[in-house]
Structure formats: C-alpha cells, structure tokens
Design a protein around this nucleic acid. Structure first.
Lengths: 352, 352
DNA sequence: GCCTATAAATGGAACGTTCCAATAAATCAA
DNA sequence: TTGATTTATTGGAACGTTCCATTTATAGGC
C-alpha cells in the first residue's frame, strides 16, 4: 500500500503514457490538453499516490501561495478571532495561511520571520511582539515580501497598518464614564512601548481634558495585558489616598482581572466601581457582570488585513494604505451607576 | 537598498571568492571549512542580503524541518494552550511549527492537510475535526509522513494518540458529585461521534453505576461544545419533571455556559446546582464562582505530543506508543453543597 | 493530394540547493 | 626530493517542477 519512493510527475507520465510536460499542464489545469488525456493523467495521479511538490515548483515559479500570520499571543482569544477573520478570506482565495506564534518574544519573532522567509512566503500579516526593534523587518523589505501589520504597529515604519481607531475608542469610553458622573478616572494596564497604548491613553486623556477632569484626578497604571495585570492595577490604585471610581482598561483581559479583584474585595463591578474594557472579545458579553467594552470588529479587521495582503501580492507592491477600523462602545453592566436591580444570591430572582 | 533579484549561493560565492560548494558547507555549519574562510563567507552572506531557499534544499535533502499543527478550533483557549506546549519543545529543537486551523470542518481539514503535504512537512500533529472520515489520513500514511493525534482520536486508526485519561477524569468528577450527595446527575454537551465523548460519558456512567445511581436518574444531553451549547443544555434539563441537581460538562466552555444560564435564572452555581467542567482551562480558576474542573495538563500533553513527533521523525517511523496523560480533579467553588460563605453583593465583605 | 493553420503533446533548460567524488594545498615520514 | 596522508576546496550531477520553443497530429481549404 505505502508507495515506495515518492512519486514524481515522471512516474505519472510513465503510468499514463504521456510526457512529463503534459502531466505538468494537467496539474495546472491548462486548457491546452485534450479532455480525455487529462482524465487519463488524473487517474494515473491517483494510482501512483502522487503528492505535488510545491518546493520544486516554487523554484521556477515567480511566487508561492503561502501566506504567514505572525501573532504575538495565541492564547489571547482576541488574536484567535483575528486569525479566524483572515482565514475566511484566504480560504475563498484557495490559500492556506500558516500561523506562527511569537509569544510576545522578539527573539522568537526573529526566528519565526526567518523561517517563514526561507519557506518562501508570498506575504506576511504580523502583529508584532512587544519590544520589536525597528530593523526587524528590514530583511523582509529587502526581499520585497509584502507585509502588513495588524492591530499593532511599529513607531516609525512604512509598513501598512490595519488597526481599530484606538484613540476614538478610548475617547468614547472615557466620555461615557465621565457622563455617568465619575470624576476620578484610571487607565489600567498596557505599557508605553506599545503604539496602541499611546493611542488609547491619548484618547482617554483627551476626553478627560475636554470634559473637564483635572490631570491630578487621573491615575495611570501600566501593567501586564492580562488578568493578572488587571488584578495588580486595581490593587495599587485602591491603595492611593483618593482612589479612582472608574477605570478604562487597556484590553478586556485586564478588565476581567479588575473585576475579579473587585469581587475579591467584596466590591461589585458596576455599582461600586465602573470598569470598561477594550476589544470586546466574545467572553465580554458572557461575563458576570457583562463587560462594557469598546468593540473593534476583530474578525472584520482580520478580513480587511487579508484583503489588503491579497491586493499587495497581486499588484506586486509592498505599499498600501493604512486602514483605521470603526469602533463603538458596547454598554453593558460593568459600568454603573444606573444600577439595574442586581440579582440577590441564591434566590429565585426574576430572570434577566 | 532593496537587492535586485534574490541572491543565491552563487552570488555569495562570487562575492567571497570561493565556490558555491564552500558556501553551502558554511551554511550547514560544516567543520570542514577553514575558520577564516567561513568568516569571509558569512560576511558575504550578510552583504548580499541572502535568504536561504529551503524549498530548493529540500529537493535534495531527505527531510524538511517543517512540522504542522492542525487544530480543529483555534478560538478555544484550550487548543491555544496545547499549541503553546508544543511550541516550547519544538523551539528548543530549532523548529518552527506552523499552525493551521480547520474550524471543525472536515473539508477544510482536507485542504489544510493537502497543503501541508505539498509543503513537504516532516510531521503532523493533529486534533482532527468532527466528522473526519477514516480515510482522511490515508495519503499521509502512504507518503510515510509521521502523524500523531492530540486530544482527539479517530475510531479505528493506527495513528498514535496523546490524550488525557478521559474515562478516569469523568469518573472522578462524577464520584465527587455523588459524594456530595447528589442523586440526579446530568452529562452536558458534546456529541456521540467523538471518541472523547464516548470516553468521558463512559467514565461518568461507570461512576454512577458503581456508586448506586439508577439509570433513570441520569440525564444525558448532547450539544455544542461551547458556552452556547451549555446554555441550551441547562435549559432543556431544567424543563424535565425531575431535573438533575448537578452536571458534569463535556468541557469548560460548556460549563461556563451552564453557569451563565443558572445566573440568568437567578440560581447560584454551586449551592443551587453543582457544575463541573473538563480541561481546566486557565479561565476556570478565574471564573465567578471558580469552576471545579478536571485538570488535564494541556501544555504538558502538547509537550508530550511534540516529543513523540520528534522521536518518530528521528527514527523515521510512523508508529509510536499511545500516551494517556494523568488527570486530576481540581475542586473549586462551582460544586456545592459545602457552601462557603458567599460574599453578599455591594458590601465590604471579608477578602477571600 | 498538398499546403497551411490550428490543436495537442513534447524535450530541454533552468530554478537553488546538496552531496559525492575528485582535485589542490599543506604537512609529514622517509 | 618523493610519496603518502591529511586538510580544504571544488565541479558536476541530481532533486521535481515550469516554461519556452519545437515537433507531431488533426483538421481545413483548395
């Protein structure tokens, strides 16, 4: 059953009684071959258990059909959603994207990028790891491989970027909090070496300024972009003399952490302390209480990035327009104080 | 700046004043070349902006160094954790694994598998999609590509499998519930076409039988393996005349859904209805209430799978031992009734 | 029937590596 | 010096495709 040495187009040719060139033509679906010949060849392909060798083909062909997705943190469901969006469009283009995880590690990222290049990728969609050096993508540029950044960007770089409107999202969220009557606000999580962070914090600050919140009433605490980071942020914030009463979190993971920490202290997220997240991952809606968050249409951005990529490959360019995706604030229960009647524990309360 | 046509070893050879063979040797880190020559060549490599063409190399070399991970649902954090475990060991072997998502779709899986084969993968770690036909991996076998299944398996197949001890995990969980005094038990989520489902349900049933729960007191409800599925399961279960008081869920996602649905009805997960999950994803610990779950050491299983894969490649075999990973029940708050003092809402309760 | 136009199939070179066998250079024993 | 041995380096063939320029078969026009 198991075929000996792997079959090549020559084996097919022999089997079908044609030349290797004919087989190649059939493989490429050329209209030049007679239908009955094609049928014969296809049968032979099946019979010998042939598997196409794309590496060999790429040696002659101009471009491969491999597209890489380089993602900084696969365990964040946010990036999985992004990946899913991209896959939707690549699939309909007959392309199988390969995903590689850099685990937020620039060194690892370097390896991944190198490996992908050696593989001869046609293009790369990248959410760069924290601490990526400006030169990390120079080789790609030199080789003329199209690259687009998704969700994150590098400080000064000419690589096209697909991101949500971080500034506006943060502005909306902060304005909402202020509108609810909060006067002492915090921004939790993230770190200043990320451009996204600058943008989100910028929007937050602008809202505060415009709507009359004094700078000394603003608490900014950097931290890990994870649940753990959120817990830490809340703890240090509440330790101050005049603690904030509401926080915008760098992302939903941080917000979940904050809510958890509130509960641990016996405080109820929403009524006792307002929290707003960013990204609106699917869990946000299902959390308890449901998290108010800035929705960024993750999958949509993924699709967009994929389309841009496809277009770049097609027109063999390495440039493209940036795309700033629309955002909107999804208001749920985690930001008081228009307190809905909270369900009392262990009772047959009215179904929500 | 951008180099013209991509550089080859010939360009390097010319630049360094040596032969292409010498360059090749240097590239492979051969000890045969004189150190100063190697230095010269390496400088030339840098100067011409060379990128290694692995496709061309694989044409002559026996084996590639690409390993594929085919995953059925990337948005389930469980699989992301699995992937992370694998990456750890591949990284230290100098291998960059490529991840591809099948989105639980056998057709998509077929495409992914085909693409990976064409790419000349050295091996594949696969968590097969639901509804995978037995023949789906025949081509791989014919081509002699090592494959290992992780987490899931196919009904009858000789491909080695790395899974947790599903039977035992479910047994432990059910026994715990029964020990707590529950007499009417449910098994929520999953579907019978999955071998894992059979195993988990089997363990559950065995515990019930052994510990004296009558068959008519057992409710089994199949459903999506997602939050949504969990919600649906609870709703139909509570609609029966004698509803269960506790449930073992097919996985944590289902359990989260169940808890959510309980809350929606004003019931408190734990005191009012016990729920136990399976997989123990990181969120389980951080949920509210924290979820009791069967811990399977996901990352550890990923590492194990990667090691097995490496060994198979090295010894060029397509066979290996199955590996059944140890499990243990992590008891948290979601399974009453030894009710800890639940925190009352909106008060300064004692910190947990 | 012969010449031309079209359709179908083919051989050969090229792609960028690796690996083997062979050469060239350096070292050593006599 | 000569030959043997070791150490470095090299040319050529091969890997499995694609693509171009040809060749061969088929059909059409007269």
């Amino acid at each position: 059953m198991a075929s000996r040495a792997k079959a090549t187009i020559f084996d097919i040719a022999r089997e079908a009684g044609v030349s290797k060139s004919t087989v190649s033509l059939v493989l490429q679906g050329s209209g030049l071959i007679r239908p009955e010949t094609a049928v014969k060849v296809r049968k032979a392909i099946e019979d010998v258990g042939y598997v196409y060798n794309r590496g060999a083909a790429n040696l002659r062909k101009a471009h491969s059909n491999v597209i890489g997705m380089v993602i900084n943190d696969l365990t964040n469901p946010f990036f999985a959603e992004l990946a899913v969006g991209m896959e939707r469009v690549f699939q309909s283009a007959g392309i199988v994207p390969f995903i590689a995880n850099t685990a937020e590690n620039p060194v690892r990222q370097e390896e991944v990028l190198k490996s992908l290049m050696e593989q001869g990728v046609a293009g790369l969609i990248v959410s760069p790891a924290r601490g990526t050096t400006p030169g990390a993508f120079r080789r790609l540029e030199m080789a003329g491989v199209p690259v687009v950044f998704a969700m994150r960007r590098l400080p000064e770089s000419r690589i096209p970027v697909i991101t949500p409107d971080n500034h506006r999202g943060a502005y909306l969220a902060a304005a909402h909090l202020i509108g609810k009557g909060h006067r002492r606000l915090a921004f939790f999580g993230g770190s200043a070496d990320l451009v996204v962070y600058q943008e989100r914090l910028g929007g937050f600050r602008e809202a505060c300024e415009t709507l009359g919140i004094a700078a000394r009433d603003i608490t900014v605490i950097e931290g890990e972009t994870s649940r753990r980071g959120g817990i830490a942020c809340l703890d240090t914030a509440l330790a101050t003399s005049e603690p904030p009463t509401a926080a915008l979190c760098f992302n939903d993971a941080v917000a979940f952490g904050v809510m958890l920490a509130l509960r641990k202290r016996g405080l109820e997220p929403g009524p006792d302390f307002a929290v707003v997240g960013f990204d609106d991952v699917v869990e946000a809606e299902h959390y308890m209480p449901a998290l108010t968050s800035v929705s960024v249409d993750t999958a949509g951005l993924g699709e967009r990035a994929a389309h841009v990529m496809l277009k770049m490959i097609q027109s063999r360019t390495t440039r493209a327009e940036d795309h700033i995706g629309a955002v909107n604030l999804v208001i749920r229960e985690s930001c008081g104080p228009d307190r809905r009647a909270r369900n009392r524990p262990a009772g047959m309360g009215d179904a929500a």
